[in-house]
Simulated scan of single mutants.
Amino acid sequence: MSMPRSTGMNRNRIIRNGIFTALVLLLAACGAGDGERSFTGQVEGRVYSVSSPVSDRLLELSVWEGDRLAEGQTVGRIDTAALELQRKSLIAGRDQIGLQLQELTLTTAQVKDTRDYYATTYRRNLELLKEQAVSDQKVRDLKLNADKWERELTTLRIKEQSLKRQQDEIGYKLEELDLMISKATLTSPAAGYVDQVYFEKGEFVPALRPVVELVSLEYVWCYLYLGESGIAQISPGQEMTARLGENTFRARVEHINSSAEFTPREVLTPENREALVYAVRVGIENPDGILKIGMPVVLEW
């Protein structure tokens, strides 16, 4: 099962490295004012945790740290022997219920025939009673028998419904087991690099614990925090340039928060802690994976 490490079953977690929760806000050049068109932000990216839905041994591990994986590529496999035994037990129980239903069908048919016989005989003798051709006691006895077999037939039909519900419940459990067995083959949820391997082949893996952590670096982003004058210089969709040493990358403003906030405490000095700013998310194209999570990059526009 694959999911971002900060959640549980196909959701991505956006991490922020170290104590810099949002952004390292530093002027790339000389000033500290919002009028500058060059700011330094910290690269952020998407991290995926590949985990198992069941607790058991790690039978296979086919990747290692630093490997580049394609989306859907096999990472490893969890032992499913216990799940397979549960599946066989459920199938045996389902087959047993099937035999009971077959037997019940035959019994129901016999009871229905008996009920129909007494019901038909009762109606016929009821007409004869009007002509005083039969005794009143005989008619009452026939009615009692017809009612008795009607109740028996109702009981059998209720039992049949109960067995069918049990059969359906087993079917649902089998579907759940089949899903867990299929997820025991761990695959990469996206293209990326193996950043961490937490378990070795043969080790016991608790349910939902990450086995491998992947980092996707093809597209990264960073946050800028700009005041009123700075926010007036940019707009969503605006092109920017991200710079790391001699390397440059295409960047674009993806989102500007609609409400102001205090600049993150971790990146402030006492003098400017009270400044209100707007968070700006800037996406950066990183096809060669040069930028890594946590790196500072200079954004220019």
Rank of each mutant, 00 (worst) to 15 (best):
S52V: 08
L59S: 13
Y223H: 11
P53Q: 13
V297T: 02
K112S: 15
T263W: 01
L90K: 13
L163C: 01
L129G: 03
V197T: 05
R46M: 10
G76P: 02
T248H: 07
G8N: 12
K201A: 12
V63Y: 02
S135Q: 12
E36L: 07
L101S: 04
E274N: 06
A260T: 13
I78S: 00
I158K: 10
N286K: 02
Y117R: 09
A146Q: 07
P189M: 12
E274C: 00
V54P: 04
D116F: 03
R151V: 05
T248Q: 14
D136E: 11
T120D: 10
T185G: 02
R250E: 11
R124Q: 12
V205K: 00
R46I: 14
S235A: 13
T21D: 12
V24N: 08
D136G: 02
K173I: 00
A29G: 13
V197D: 02
Q238V: 01
V298A: 04
R68T: 10
G35C: 10
R87D: 01
T241V: 10
E213S: 09
G66Y: 09
T108I: 04
L214Y: 06
L59W: 06
F262N: 14
N12A: 14
P264K: 04
R13S: 08
K183N: 09
K173E: 03
R273N: 08
G18E: 10
V215Y: 05
K88S: 10
L244A: 11
E131Q: 09
R68H: 11
V54L: 12
N247S: 14
L99C: 01
F20P: 00
G98Y: 06
S259L: 06
L214A: 04
F204W: 13
R115A: 11
L142I: 11
L129I: 06
E127N: 08
G93F: 05
L144Q: 07
L163G: 02
C30F: 10
I158S: 07
A109K: 12
P210F: 03
I19S: 14
L291I: 02
E285K: 08
R151Y: 06
D178E: 11
Q137S: 13
V194C: 08
S216L: 03
G76S: 06
T269R: 05
P53I: 05
E103T: 06
E176Q: 15
G237L: 02
E213R: 14
G45M: 03
I293F: 01
L291M: 02
